[in-house]
Amino acid sequence: MSQTDIQSDIQKTILKQQKAEDRRKLMLNGILLVLLLLAPFVMYPVFLMKILCFALFAVAFNLLFGFTGLLSFGHAAFLATGGYTTGYLLSNFSGLTTEMGIIAGTLVAAVLGLGFALLSIRRQGIYFAMVTLALAQLVFFFFVQSPFTGGEDGLHGVPRGELFGLINLEDNLNMYYFVLVVFLACYLLVQRIVSSPYGHVLKAIKQNEPRAVSLGYKVDRYKVLAFVISATLAGLAGSMKSVVFQLASLNDAHWHMSGEVILMTLVGGVGTLLGPVLGATLVVNIEYQLGQGPLRDWVDPILGAIFVLTVLSFRSGIVGEVQKFVRKNMG
């Protein structure tokens, strides 16, 4: 066989593998879709919506942490900004339809994300985390002081209203399927992003930033874009959440929330697509189950212990460990 034959053979093998990978992705997406379509018939829709909102939040966070290598410790700011903006607008302007309120909340979070990114992107490692934390604390105090947020009480009674002025979202099933459509769209978008030409550059930056620079990439610009997309989706998660619960509160802006999304992502599997979804599902469930029982004062220490356990003994998270296992045993 000539050298060019070997070359084209290998190229064919690679294309075949890509096709197989695409089929596998499609199948997993299909399973996820069916599960989520049927879920409200066996579980309480409001609880499911809570999971989906946090799952979207974690997926957004993971785009930055898992796929770009930037650990933000200030993502609560975007969740809260989306939530407050949407909550305030829908409460005070009855002419707005629900989706307009959500879009507005998302956009404000995107702009805030750009601001955060421009101020933090040059910092490396722990300094980046610290700058994002400091900025998020500023945002927190802004919300504490501002009259429109209702301070410690939060913003209550946000009307769910009607989607496109047509579909009544007071109905929990309608609301659920709306949340589901938004979640799936974002999930597929992130899936697309990480395998796109842009996603390959992010991967390169994450794995060896000086090398990416030496190959002519202005890495700061790529990181800023990743940050803004991540903040936008986190804001969308907050906006949806405020509509679902008809409430926007300081909890969402607190640094606890920035920590919780890190926990969700790590437990589920950082840098995997399904990991944050699974992690959010687990953490929301654990919090709920413990909150009901005699251990209700122990929620934070228990979550803390899970965090430590994950970091020390299964760093790749649940999905990451499963992937490793499959790779090892099925070649």
Partner: peptide
Amino acid sequence: FPHMTALENIRVALQSFEGSSFSFWKSG
């Protein structure tokens, strides 16, 4: 880039001169 294939390593360099490096909506 350790967690990319050899081929993907080279493509990162080739891609540097393509217009598509910000195209996050395009397929891999």
